[in-house]
């Protein structure tokens, strides 16, 4: 049994299909759902966390159907939404103990202590949350989410609005949770973070999941490494096998290769043997940004904002 399984999961708001026939299987990993604004990421998370009822299809979380047994699903999950919602007039400890009580766990104070320690917040646990930084507030939300030791954690844009150090710390904690056996489902706009932390990513566009794969495989599928060499001399020899010459712009030569790091050495040696002076060499590896843009494209919003439809969606959320 996988921790998250979806079967033709679909959500429609009137004529708009926000999530279209999603079938996937996620277990014991960090799964990142990537997509442009309005592509259906949050709607997917809301269906999986029982906040929205699917129009068609179903999802099983820890073996429980979100349609048939939503309360059992909620027993086994935690959800940290995009909006940072912690009570600034309560202390960090009070915020976590409150969640522990709501989850009905036997010793909420002890569990809160453990969750706060895990998130590195024990020293500031008795300070009012209004004195916490953005990163600390997000970690406090994670402590709240972990207080009942869930099997699956849903995070909607967990690092939005945080500085670099704050983001890094949050991801360290998320990776740590996966290593302890937790399944983490995360939505994010930050491709570099997804590349670094997610075991697999799914790319969703207009409600359809276009592809689900490891970041490495996705990058390899889009294009190979690009080697850029600047030289004022002309090359007269032949290029080795596996190196494709893409063209020359000014004094810059571009090559597509399988492994950029190895090819740099081979090409540098070859150029030197042909008596050429090299000014600079660089390698550009494909990123998830390239994958994302090749699959989804740069989308400008072409249609006028439909206020009525927006309100309907908000009300149902």
């Amino acid at each position: 049994m996988a921790m998250i399984e979806t079967f033709g999961l679909t959500k429609r708001f009137g004529s708009l299909t926000a999530v279209d026939d999603l079938t996937t299987r996620i277990d014991g990993e960090i799964f990142g759902l990537l997509g442009p604004n309005g592509s259906g990421k949050t709607t997917t998370v809301k269906m999986l966390t029982t906040l929205l009822t699917p129009t068609a299809g179903d999802a099983h979380i820890c073996g429980y159907s979100v349609r048939e047994h939503p309360r059992d699903v909620r027993e086994h999950i935690s959800y940290v939404p995009q909006d940072m919602a912690v009570d600034p007039k309560l202390t960090g400890r009070e915020n976590v103990v409150f969640f522990g009580k709501l989850y009905g766990i036997p010793r909420p104070r002890d569990a809160a202590e453990e969750a706060l320690a895990r998130m590195g917040l024990l020293e500031r646990a008795d300070d009012l949350v209004r004195t916490y930084s953005g990163g600390m507030r997000r970690r406090l939300e994670l402590a709240q989410a972990l207080v009942h030791d869930p099997s699956v954690l849903f995070l909607d844009e967990p690092t939005i609005g945080l500085d670099v150090a704050g983001r890094r710390k949050i991801w360290e904690h998320i990776i740590g949770l996966k290593e302890r056996g937790m399944t983490v489902f995360v939505t994010t706009h930050y491709m570099d973070e997804a590349d670094h932390a997610c075991d697999r990513v799914g790319i969703i566009d207009r409600g359809k999941v276009i592809v689900t794969e490891t970041p490495g495989m996705l990058k390899a599928s889009v294009c190979r490494d690009i080697v850029l060499i600047r030289s004022d001399d002309r090359f007269k020899g032949t290029f080795p096998e596996g190196v494709t010459f893409l063209g020359r712009t000014g004094n810059e030569l571009r090559f597509e290769v399988e492994d950029g790091d190895e090819a740099v050495l081979v090409l540098s040696r070859l150029f030197a043997e042909n008596g050429m002076d090299i000014r600079s060499v660089s390698v550009r590896k494909p990123t998830l940004d390239d994958v994302f843009l090749s699959l989804v494209g740069e989308q400008d919003e072409q249609t006028a904002f439909d206020l009525t439809r927006f309100r309907t969606m908000l009300r149902r959320r």
């Binding site: 906040l51 959800y79 989850y103 009905g104 709240q144």
Partner: peptide, 8 residues
């Protein structure tokens, strides 16, 4: 949203 995603 957080409260609604809880089992209570």
């Amino acid at each position: 949203q957080k409260f609604l995603a809880m089992p209570s």
